[in-house]
Design a protein around this nucleic acid. Structure first.
Lengths: 151, 151
DNA sequence: CTTTTATCGTTAGTCGAGCGAACATTGGCC
DNA sequence: GGCCAATGTTCGCTCGACTAACGATAAAAG
């Protein structure tokens, strides 16, 4: 009654790069949806996380730490600044730089995002046991490391 | 001498959804780059694979089998038809449909893409042993299945 | 000190993937 | 015959990732 279920080609079903994309899409769907209700985007979380963990930083440094392009940092900082989660101030010691600082409200917000994201991760990984989740993370980490650091 | 290597926030480093995206990006880079040299794109492979495995089909059916939106199928079929890897003919039995058929050249091309993609997969999974690769695929498959089939 | 080189913030614009909306044509169903 | 669903197609949107350019400033080289 609800199974027209078209078959997926074997080649595609087992192709690692495709599997990964499939899962990435699910992950993004869950995460974006969780964040959307609060008017946030993934970049917001990344930036707040970087700021909270390493303290105030220039936009360029934030870009390097989060992997976000420096041209995209601009918009993200704008959005966060509008909601007063961060402040953008010129660096007196280097007038090329802006120093970005989290506000207390920003830290609070980060905690809220932490909560939402952790729920989303759980939903994503539902079919796996905790041991399997760690396995998966370990395997993925090794691949990610190899392809960002080395090359 | 070449390690400014900015640190990545802990929160991001272990966030599964982010790890997966990271790896997906590497995968796409490798795959796209392998395909680009031949003027192909991922959709081309998906379509040819579906055709070769299940035979001639309507564009809508191809969409269902590959997960490609039917509006995107149009362009993909156009591109493949231009290079004479597929043929698009009206279905005499249902005049709403086009029947897409792989040509022998298309089958040959698919084999070439198979070769290129398999290399790319290998490059992606370099840091993993074969046992680990199977583990990874198994884990990812379970997640992907859960989130596509069951909703 | 001056000239070159590099970094920073910013704007604008490209590209591909994944979609939604709309529309005309055609089929199936009652 | 009349209504709803499916099909092919076009148009356009959003997002993330990225490139190119520019003016300002700083640091390095001469």
């Amino acid at each position: 009654m609800e199974k027209p279920e078209d078959p997926i080609p074997q080649r595609l079903r087992v192709l690692p790069s495709r599997l990964i994309n499939q899962v990435a899409m699910s992950a993004n769907r869950l995460v974006d949806q969780a964040l959307a209700e609060t008017g946030s985007r993934r970049y917001h979380y990344a930036l707040l996380a970087a700021l909270e963990e390493f303290g105030p930083a220039s936009q360029a440094a934030l870009g390097r730490r989060t992997g976000i392009d420096r041209s995209d940092i601009v918009a993200t900082v704008n959005e966060l600044a509008e909601r007063e989660f961060v402040e953008r101030n010129p660096d007196p010691g280097d007038r090329r730089r802006n120093i970005i600082t989290v506000t207390p409200a920003g830290v609070q917000w980060l905690k809220e995002l932490d909560r939402l994201l952790s729920q989303a991760q759980d939903e994503l990984l539902t079919p796996l046991s905790s041991a399997e989740r760690e396995q998966l993370i370990a395997l993925l980490t090794r691949i990610a490391d190899r392809h960002s650091a080395s090359h």
